[in-house]
Structure formats: structure tokens, C-alpha cells
């Protein structure tokens, strides 16, 4: 049996953490793009689209991410598509992220007081002018803290991709554990790396929230 030094373990975990970061970025960028598209479609005024996006959001918010990953991986395989763990994890996490961001952003748009719409209306602005000059700038500022905050959930969510065989930080941890039988050391290190990724984002989110508060937006 091969001996692993502590450095070997740390090095392997850090290498695997790259894939956690890449998967998080894919999920976040893909999810944000899709979420933005859904947010716009929801606002378009088409009732059918609105209902369908509502159902989409409810389904992804109301089911465990793990089941979504299983369906994306094993479900598609059962349907005859051969999807790699990479693709399945990317798709499931992107859809998951888009549903949550779409809902967060809807909340931000609705958080802009009704009086802003009324004031714009009596000044003669139409829907698009009001959106562009009055509502969106305020909603955008409101949305930054919860959006950054949610990115932490995405990073932690990528850990579940380990169960479909995607080798990221958590999967690398279990593999190293099988080889070294030093679970405490290894999983403590894994947790520490996640913390190092998430904590700065949490702090940043809190900082943004405070700055927003100071600007008198709430």
C-alpha cells in the first residue's frame, strides 16, 4: 500500500478543489444567465409563460438537489442518453441555480415599493421607461447581497456531485479516505477548503448588505 504524507493529501485535495470551483462557476454563470432569461420572460406579461416558470421554480425549489442530480445522471441514462458525470452535474446545478436566482430576483423587483411605480406613472413614464430608469436600478442594488449569498449555496451544492462519480473536492476526500483510513484529518481538511471558498463570499455579501443599508435603500 502506498503511504500518503499530509502534503500528498493536501495537494490532492487542492487539485480536486479546482473542479469544485469550475463546477461552481459553470453552475453560477449558467444559472444566472438562465435565471435572468426566466426573470425577463416572467415580466413579459404572458400568463402561460409566467405559470410555467412558476412551476419550474417550485419544482426545483421543492425537490432535493441530490434527486435532481440522480435524474440528470441516471434518469437520462435510463432514457437512452449517455450523459457524462460532468455534463449531468453541470446541467442539474445550472437548472437548480437558475430556479433559485429567478425567485430571488423576482423578490427584489417586488421589493421596490409600489409608490415608485405610481410616481413614475403620474410623471408620464410608460412600463419600459419605469423599469429602466426607476425599478431595475433599485432592484439591481437590492439583488447583489442575496445573489452573492446564494453563490455560497451553489459551492456547497457541488459536493453532491460526488455521488454520481464526479471527482471534485468531496469525492477526492472519500477516495483519499479509502486509501489512508484517516477520515478525521481528511474530512477536516475538506471542510476547511470549503470554508476558505465560502467564507469570503459570505463576508462580502454581508458587507454589501450593510453598504446598501447605509445608502438608505431599505
Amino acid at each position: 500500500m502506498i503511504e500518503f504524507t499530509l502534503w500528498d493529501i493536501v495537494r490532492n485535495l487542492l487539485l480536486a478543489a479546482r473542479w469544485t470551483i469550475v463546477l461552481s462557476l459553470i453552475a453560477f454563470i449558467g444559472g444566472a444567465s438562465l435565471g435572468l432569461l426566466f426573470t425577463v420572460l416572467r415580466l413579459s406579461g404572458n400568463r402561460l409563460l409566467k405559470v410555467m416558470i412558476g412551476i419550474y421554480v417550485d419544482v426545483f425549489q421543492g425537490t432535493p438537489l441530490l434527486m435532481q442530480l440522480f435524474l440528470a445522471y441516471f434518469g437520462t441514462a435510463a432514457l437512452g442518453f449517455n450523459v457524462s458525470a460532468w455534463a449531468a452535474a453541470s446541467i442539474a446545478l445550472t437548472l437548480f441555480t437558475s430556479a433559485f436566482l429567478c425567485d430571488i430576483w423576482r423578490g427584489c423587483l417586488e421589493a421596490v415599493p409600489r409608490g415608485q411605480w405610481h410616481a413614475s406613472r403620474v410623471l408620464g413614464m410608460d412600463y419600459l421607461q419605469t423599469m429602466r430608469h426607476v425599478i431595475l436600478p433599485q432592484a439591481l442594488r437590492l439583488s447583489v447581497p442575496p445573489t452573492v449569498g446564494f453563490s455560497v449555496q451553489v459551492i456547497k451544492g457541488t459536493a453532491l456531485a460526488s455521488v454520481i462519480g464526479f471527482v471534485e473536492l468531496t469525492k477526492a476526500g472519500t477516495m483519499l479516505n479509502n486509501a489512508t483510513f484517516a477520515p478525521f484529518t481528511i474530512f477536516a481538511l475538506v471542510a476547511l477548503i470549503y470554508f476558505a471558498l465560502c467564507y469570503p463570499l459570505s463576508r462580502y455579501s454581508r458587507y454589501l448588505e450593510r453598504r446598501l443599508y447605509d445608502a438608505g435603500m431599505r
Binding site: 415599493p113 415608485q116 406613472r121 403620474v122 433599485q138 438608505g216
Partner: peptide
């Protein structure tokens, strides 16, 4: 809005 302006109880300035 051409002829009518309005002022609200809650000001509704754009913050």
C-alpha cells in the same frame, strides 16, 4: 400626465 401632476403622502422620490 400632460395636464395633471401629483404629489403623494409618502413623497415617492426615486432614492
Amino acid at each position: 400626465s400632460r395636464n395633471v401632476g401629483m404629489v403623494f403622502q409618502s413623497f415617492n422620490l426615486f432614492p
